[in-house]
Computed example of a mutant assay.
Amino acid sequence: MEGIISFGNKRNYDDFKKQIPADVLPLFDSIREFCFKLGENVLEDVRMHRVVFCKSMTFRWFLDVEPEKDGVKIKIQRSRKDPIQVIQIKKEQQISEFTEFFKNAYENIH
C-alpha cells in the first residue's frame, strides 16, 4: 500500500490494529483515512504503541495517534517551534470536530 513506511520494525497497520480495542477501531480507522486524504505525500510510520503520520520523506510528523481504552490520544505538531498540542478523542465523538486541526498541521509542517 502506498504511503506506508517502515524503520526496520516490520510492523504494518494490519498487525497494529489487533491491539486496538474493537470499539475504538472505527475511530482510529477514520483518523487514518482522513490523514491519507490530506495528500499523496502522507506517510504512515507504524510504531510499537502508536501510528505516526508524516509529510513526505522529510519525515516531518504532523500527527501521532495512540489508541486508548476509550478513545485515542493525538499529538499534533504544526512546526518545530510551536509546542505540541495533545488532544483526546473519545470513541463516541466524531473526528469532524478535529479535522481542521489535522489539516492545519499537515499544511504547516515543514
Score class of each variant (00 low, 15 high):
Q93K: 13
R11D: 04
I5M: 07
S30Q: 13
V52A: 07
F7Y: 06
H110E: 12
N104F: 10
M48D: 13
I20S: 09
P21D: 07
F34K: 06
F36P: 00
D15S: 13
M1F: 12
G71Y: 08
V65P: 06
S6F: 01
Q88W: 06
N12F: 00
Q77M: 11
G3E: 01
F98L: 02
G39R: 11
S30W: 00
E92K: 14
F28T: 06
E2L: 12
F7V: 06
K69Q: 15
Q77F: 02
S56V: 07
S56T: 11
Q93E: 14
I89P: 10
L25M: 03
N12R: 09
V52C: 08
S6T: 11
E33T: 13
E100H: 14
N41K: 14
E92Y: 10
E2H: 05
L63W: 02
N9L: 10
E33F: 05
F101M: 08
G8C: 08
S79H: 12
C54F: 03
N12Q: 05
R60H: 14
G39S: 09
F59A: 05
K69L: 14
R78W: 04
Y106M: 09
S79D: 03
N41I: 09
N108T: 14
Q19D: 09
F16A: 10
K73S: 15
E66D: 10
T99A: 01
E68F: 12
K73Q: 12
D29K: 14
K18P: 01
F59Y: 13
S96C: 05
D15C: 09
F59L: 12
Q77P: 08
L43Y: 01
R78D: 00
Q77Y: 03
Q77D: 02
K90Q: 10
F34M: 02
K81E: 12
K75P: 00
S30L: 00
F102D: 04
N12H: 03
V24S: 03
A22G: 03
H49Y: 14
S30G: 08
I109Q: 01
H110N: 11
D64L: 06
Q85E: 15
Q19F: 05
G3Y: 06
D23P: 13
R80P: 07
F53N: 04
K73V: 13
F62Y: 02
T99S: 02
M57Y: 15
E97I: 08
E107F: 12
E66R: 10
E33Y: 06
V51S: 08
G39N: 11
V42P: 03
N108G: 08
V72N: 09
Y106L: 09
A105W: 01
Q88S: 13
V72A: 05
L43T: 03
Y13Q: 02
P26G: 00
E97G: 09
F98P: 09
V46K: 11
K69D: 14
K10Q: 04
D82Q: 12
R80A: 11
S79F: 15
G3C: 05
P26Q: 00
F16E: 06
F62A: 01
I87S: 07
I74C: 13
K90H: 14
R60G: 04
I87P: 01
G8L: 06
K103R: 15
V86E: 12
I5S: 07
I109A: 00
I89M: 06
I109V: 11
I109E: 01
K10M: 00
N104S: 14
Y106R: 07
K103T: 14
V24H: 05
P26S: 00
K18L: 11
I89G: 07
D70A: 15
R47H: 12
G71S: 07
H49Q: 12
D14P: 10
L63V: 12
I87T: 07
D23A: 04
